[in-house]
């Protein structure tokens, strides 16, 4: 059954990044926004040892009617939100398909193997080209740089949530974002989060 709110049911989102980037928080915020808009959301994620500097992935299934598997089937992503560029490629390799949309924060976090010289990190241009070729729509952001300007690099994850809103593919908006963060965050941090959200939304609107 199709929801009047959703372009596809279930709508499958993968939020990916590296442990410590606020991946889990981003998935919770977005999912809570969707639940407030009347959606049934299933999030699949792993944490614990997998977050110690490793790749992390949250799978969000958004439906009008029911719970879905906490693991999205291979090639089944509708939207990939990558807080780290190489992780966008890693997820596309398994979950990519011709209809997928991709949002990428271009600030790399180098794997230890790259730091040691055992492996190479791809040039930004190569990443852009691969993501563009493997998606129906792609948008590249400098979310970490923008977040540093706001005073804290961790806000990169919220900029990416703003970008999701800017895409206009989900029934979420700034108002519901504000409601959700006001519940889970000290008042002193609300302003910076709202600004981060706006930066992300503006970067994507009409661009992707």
């Amino acid at each position: 059954m199709k929801s009047p709110l959703l372009t596809k049911d279930p709508y499958n989102i993968i939020i990916t990044g590296v442990g410590g980037q606020g991946n889990v928080m981003a998935s919770r915020v977005l999912a809570n926004m969707l639940v407030r808009r009347g959606c049934k959301v299933t999030i699949g994620e792993t944490f614990g040892m997998s977050q110690r500097g490793g790749s992390v992935m949250s799978h969000l299934r958004v439906s009008a009617t029911t719970v879905w598997s906490p693991q999205i089937p291979k090639r089944g992503a509708d939207l990939i939100v990558a807080i780290e560029p190489v992780e966008a490629l890693r997820v596309l390799a398994d979950y990519g398909n011709p209809a997928v949309k991709v949002l990428v924060n271009m600030r790399p976090i180098y794997p230890v193997g790259v730091i040691t010289g055992e492996s190479d990190y791809p040039e930004p241009e190569k990443i852009r080209r691969a993501v563009t070729a493997l998606s129906a729509a792609a948008c590249f952001l400098d979310a970490t740089e923008e977040a540093i300007n706001l005073g804290n690099p961790i806000l990169g994850n919220i900029i990416m949530i703003g970008a999701v809103e800017g895409l206009g593919v989900l029934p979420v908006n700034r108002e519901v974002f504000e409601t959700v963060i006001r519940e889970g965050m000290p008042a002193s941090r609300i302003e910076a989060n709202l600004r981060a959200f706006d930066i992300g939304a503006a970067a994507v609107a009409g661009n992707c």
Binding site: V18, G20, M49, S50, R52, G53, G54, S55, R75, V86, E87, L89, R90, L92, A93, G96, N97, P98, P111, V112, G113, V114, S119, D120, Y121, P122, K126, I127, R129, A130, A133, L134
Partner: peptide
């Protein structure tokens, strides 16, 4: 299955994705 053309394009990822080994923070 996915369209063959997409499968073809996926080949451009070969060698592009460095392994991300877990490590101490």
């Amino acid at each position: 299955t996915i369209p063959a053309a997409y499968g073809e394009k996926l080949r451009m990822l070969a060698g592009l994705i460095p392994r991300r080994e877990q490590t101490f923070c």
